[in-house]
Computed example of a mutant assay.
Amino acid sequence: MESDIEKPLEDFMTYLDALPPDRKGMMTVEYAAKLVECAAYEVAGEVCATTVSSLILCSAELSRLATRLSKQE
């Protein structure tokens, strides 16, 4: 039996595979940034502030990487 996340993740990966090759890497990193940022806000209030801060910083770094990738393409 599939977990609750496997099917949506499989569908999302199929979506990513269909992106234009010259933008696929950058877009994948940008989506990762947005997912990590969303996770930070979802767990805020449930976990310590240090963990939320770490997630937000991780999201920001991923977003910066996506920007760099977009300039290289």
Rank of each mutant, 00 (worst) to 15 (best):
M1N: 05
M1F: 09
M1K: 08
E2D: 11
E2C: 01
S3E: 06
I5S: 06
E6M: 09
E6C: 00
E6N: 06
K7R: 13
K7A: 14
K7E: 13
P8D: 04
L9E: 02
L9V: 11
E10F: 05
E10R: 13
D11Y: 02
F12K: 01
M13S: 07
M13R: 08
T14D: 13
T14Q: 12
T14K: 13
T14A: 13
Y15N: 02
L16I: 14
L16E: 04
D17R: 09
D17E: 15
D17S: 12
D17F: 04
D17K: 09
L19C: 03
L19E: 05
P20A: 15
P21N: 07
D22N: 08
R23H: 10
R23D: 13
K24Q: 15
K24R: 15
K24E: 14
G25N: 12
M26T: 15
M26E: 15
M26H: 04
M26S: 14
M27Q: 04
T28M: 14
E30A: 11
Y31G: 01
Y31C: 10
Y31D: 11
A32W: 01
A33W: 01
K34G: 00
K34S: 02
L35H: 02
L35G: 04
L35C: 09
L35Q: 04
V36I: 15
V36T: 10
V36Q: 02
E37T: 03
E37I: 00
E37S: 08
E37R: 09
C38E: 13
C38V: 10
C38T: 14
C38R: 11
A39S: 10
A39C: 11
A39G: 00
A40S: 12
A40L: 02
Y41V: 06
Y41P: 00
E42G: 01
V43I: 15
V43R: 03
A44Y: 08
G45L: 04
G45V: 05
E46R: 10
E46G: 13
E46T: 08
V47M: 09
V47L: 11
V47E: 13
C48T: 14
C48G: 15
C48Y: 03
A49F: 09
A49L: 14
A49S: 11
T50E: 11
T50Y: 00
V52R: 01
V52E: 08
V52D: 07
S53R: 11
S53M: 12
S53P: 00
S54P: 00
S54Q: 08
S54A: 12
S54H: 06
L55K: 06
L55Y: 06
I56Y: 03
L57D: 15
S59P: 05
S59I: 03
A60R: 05
A60F: 01
A60D: 15
A60I: 03
A60K: 05
E61S: 13
L62P: 00
S63L: 10
R64T: 15
L65R: 08
L65G: 04
L65Q: 09
L65N: 05
A66E: 10
A66W: 06
A66K: 01
T67G: 10
T67A: 12
L69D: 08
S70Q: 12
S70W: 02
K71D: 14
K71R: 15
Q72E: 15
E73R: 09
E73Y: 11
